[in-house]
Design a protein around this nucleic acid. Structure first.
Length: 776
DNA sequence: GTTCTAGAAC
DNA sequence: GTTCTAGAAC
């Protein structure tokens, strides 16, 4: 194929010289997030010699992400207008870009500019960037880039491009920049493929060498196409049956071959298992016998891995010449240790992810007995990389460490080691003291020394197990008490995500799952019962009354013309509250209070820790739009009952603050007053509509509704569609948040006072004086 | 109201 | 891997 391209280049170049037809161009940029597509466009457009329009799907809809169709339309418009177009989206797959290629025609050339930069560079840039329009930030970027590159299909002229420029480094990019910047309105560029180095050359050799090695070791074939393809740990490790070929060897080989291009294959960057990276202890400064030390490491690793599933251990050293590393590697290969669970790795333990693509959530530190920074080697490096936060966190837990002991320190979230590398814990360990100037000097007592070293590793692994086990507990939906600390941590982690930091998806997901199952248990009975009633009584809504002028955009009911008046039919699922209001005695398990004119129940899907509904029992009073002056007393009663319950809850729990109100257009039939605590801490609060229905003008405070009914005979309904799609703002400090998880993370901590409008007119029910035992 | 699904995006 | 959106079904 390369030869063919060269032929085409020379032919097309000749053609180009003859033709100066001033065509417009569509340049389809291709590259992973962080490859520099937007920057490329910006740089060309800054100094361009022809008019350009940049079409970016991330921002095409008034600054927000839009559809492919919108991009096409924008491009077509620009081309009609005589402007050339940059298509700024990833376009890594043939399918994704095919529609844009079709923009080409007699008057329009379609070019590709491929920003085929090292995955690692893209990841680093994606992680670093803060204000990217696509909102791709934090460590998540690594997973994204890796995944996208797995699907990468380099463009071919046969797809319909007249010119393809490959850029594999900054120099290539600059070259392409110059070409497009200098391209005048009347100029055209030669067709063909440019800049493509033999994609299989060096890297492939490296991989092939490794493959050969692996095959020699009686192993399976490794799949790896080229340098930019992520090489997953599983694939690499899977190539080894006996553990004799491990990751270090593969990386080393590849690394040596391609180091000029700084183009390492990426490891699977998202750890599916908890991973501990640890240095060799006591073998550097005070040369513990390496044979003995390596035996101990391998034995302790083997022992530990027999006890626990779903973890990985990685022995790390700075150089592939490391004797201890090679000894351990060799000895491990003689055992039954699963090379997926234990391997050696060459790299800086403080930069395993950013430099080596290996994600380790826990790293061990070869600490000194005072647990202080300094000294040299790993200890200095880790304290240095972790910043002062680690020192403080360590001090809080212990002032010193005995030989053979370990100390688990959760890494403060402000630590760069957490932010950049995703390390959540540092475990300090202290080996036997080989320093003759110290009182507990071993003096070559290797029996004792080996015991201490062994103990150091076993303490380290036990410490690691305690972390891994907690995580596992959450995964399996253990009781909430046992996971209290990780949940707290997760709250903070979520908060950190809002400032572009390393996400901790696993923990987040687990937490949601835990809460979800908890809620389900509580609500199941009601859910089932309500479900039954919808079905059995879905036809009993013949008595629906109440013509209204409310907007009927809500899908919970259909608008019908009956005798010139508008009426509505509610969906069967929207009837549950109506059934309860009409026959509360049939729902004794669900309702918590039945009065003559109202029924009180817990919301089936509470959007906060406490979320009650006060139902009007009057048949035909479906929603706020049906309410008139004649219902004033009923509204007051509903308010009084709701307020009574709110006060009762908040006297039991002083952290609860309540707000009472109605949805302008409810989804469920039967007028109901929401009594909802303002923590909004609930797994059922899942989307923008949920939030905005309680925190925009769509929510009508009960006090205001009563006021309006008494003055005007009707309540104002704020049911503009825009309200539901409004940006997510904290109900306290009014800060804006890009999505629900971040909002929830924020509100879990926000203690700002409520806005003035909520503090007025008794719209909020504040914490009540605590009830005494006798009152309760 | 919810759940489920799919597609699109980063 | 996560988020968002939309549509469909109940």
């Amino acid at each position: 194929m390369a030869e063919l391209d060269i032929e085409m280049i020379s032919k097309e170049e000749e053609d180009a010289k003859e033709e100066m037809n001033g065509k417009v161009i569509v340049v389809i940029l291709m590259g992973a997030p962080g490859s520099g597509k937007s920057t490329f466009c910006d740089n060309v457009m800054k100094a361009a010699n022809r008019p350009w329009v940049r079409v970016c799907q991330d921002t095409i809809a008034n600054g927000k992400a839009g559809t492919k169709a919108q991009c096409i339309k924008r491009a077509v418009d620009a081309l009609k207008d005589g402007k050339s177009v940059f298509i700024d989206r990833c376009n890594l797959e043939r399918e994704q870009r095919s529609e844009f290629v079709k923009l080409g025609g007699p008057e329009v050339d379609v070019h590709a500019v491929v920003l085929d930069l090292p995955a690692r560079l893209c990841i680093t840039r994606s992680v670093k960037r803060t204000g990217h329009e696509g909102n791709l930030q934090g460590g998540r970027a690594a997973a994204v880039v890796n995944k996208m590159l797995q699907k990468k299909e380099l463009p071919k002229l046969s797809e319909g491009f007249s010119r393809i420029t490959f850029c594999q480094n900054d120099i290539d990019v600059q070259g392409a920049l110059d070409i497009y910047t200098g391209l005048g309105a009347k100029n055209t560029l030669p067709s063909g493929c440019f800049g493509q180095k033999n994609p299989d050359a060096k890297v492939q050799q490296g991989i092939m060498k490794f493959l050969k090695k692996a095959e020699d070791s009686n192993t399976k074939e490794l799949k790896a196409n080229n340098s930019h393809h992520p090489v997953s740990v599983d694939e690499t490790k899977g190539s080894s049956v006996d553990g004799s070929i491990n990751i270090t060897s593969s990386i080393d080989t590849v690394n040596k071959e391609v180091k000029e291009e700084e183009d390492l294959p990426m490891y699977s960057s998202v750890p599916e298992v908890s991973t501990l990276a640890f240095p060799s202890i006591s073998t550097s400064d005070f040369q513990f016998n390496l044979e003995k030390a390596s035996d101990i490491i391998v034995e302790e690793v083997e022992k530990f891995l027999k006890k626990i599933e779903n973890v990985r251990l990685v022995l790390v050293d700075l150089t592939h010449r490391s004797k201890i590393l090679n000894l351990v590697k060799a000895k491990a290969s003689q055992t039954n240790i699963d090379s997926k669970k234990f391997f050696t790795f060459v790299g800086d333990i403080t930069q395993l992810y950013t430099q080596g693509g290996l994600r380790c959530n826990v790293i061990a530190n070869a600490a000194n007995w005072r647990l202080k920074p300094g000294g040299g080697g790993v200890n200095a490096a880790i304290f240095n990389a972790a910043g002062p936060a680690l020192e403080t966190a360590t001090e809080e837990r212990a002032g010193s460490l005995n030989p053979g002991s370990a100390l688990v320190v959760p890494l403060p979230l402000s630590s760069p080691l957490y932010e950049k590398e995703g390390v959540t814990h540092v475990i300090h360990i202290l080996g036997p003291n080989m320093n003759p100037n110290r009182p507990n000097f071993l003096n070559n007592d290797y029996n004792k020394g080996c015991n201490v070293l062994r103990k150091a590793y076993s303490s380290l692994f036990e410490g690691f197990k305690s972390i891994a086990r907690t995580q596992k507990t959450i995964e399996k939906g253990g009781d909430e008490q046992s996971v209290a600390r990780p949940l707290d941590l997760d709250q903070v982690l979520l908060e950190r995500r809002s400032t572009n930091d390393f996400p901790n998806k696993d923990q987040k997901m687990k937490r949601e799952d835990t809460y979800e199952s908890e809620r389900n248990k509580k609500c199941k009975g009601l859910q089932i019962e309500l479900g039954t009633h919808h079905v059995s009584k879905s036809n009993d809504n013949a008595s629906v009354s109440g013509p209204t002028d409310a907007t009927k955009r809500n899908t919970s009911f259909k608008k019908e013309e009956v005798g010139g008046k508008t009426s509505k039919t509610w969906g069967s699922w929207a009837q549950a509250l109506h059934h309860i209001a009409i026959n509360p005695e049939k729902h004794k398990n669900d309702v918590i209070e039945i009065l003559d004119d109202v029924v009180v129940l817990n919301d089936l899907y509470p959007k906060a820790r406490k979320h009650l509904l006060v139902l009007a029992r009057k048949d035909g009073l479906d929603h706020l739009a049906d309410v008139g002056a004649e219902h004033l007393q009923l509204l007051r009663n509903m308010h009084t009952v709701g307020e009574k319950w709110a006060k009762q809850f908040s006297s039991d729990d002083a952290s609860l603050i309540f707000r009472l109100g109605y949805h302008s257009v409810p989804s469920m039939r039967q007028l109901h007053l929401h009594v909802i605590s303002q923590d909004f801490n609930s797994t059922h609060l899942k989307n923008k509509k949920h939030w905005n229905s309680f925190n925009t003008a769509f929510f009508r405070d009960s006090v205001d509704v009563i006021d309006e009914i008494s003055k005007d005979g009707k309540a104002r309904l704020n049911n503009d569609e825009k309200l539901m799609s409004m940006e997510l703002r904290c109900h306290r400090c009014r800060s804006a948040h890009p999505n629900i998880p971040r909002l929830k993370s924020h509100i879990s901590n926000c203690q700002a006072p409520f806005p003035p409008n909520l503090l007025q007119e008794d719209r909020l029910i504040p914490p009540q004086p605590r009830r005494t035992e006798t009152e309760a």
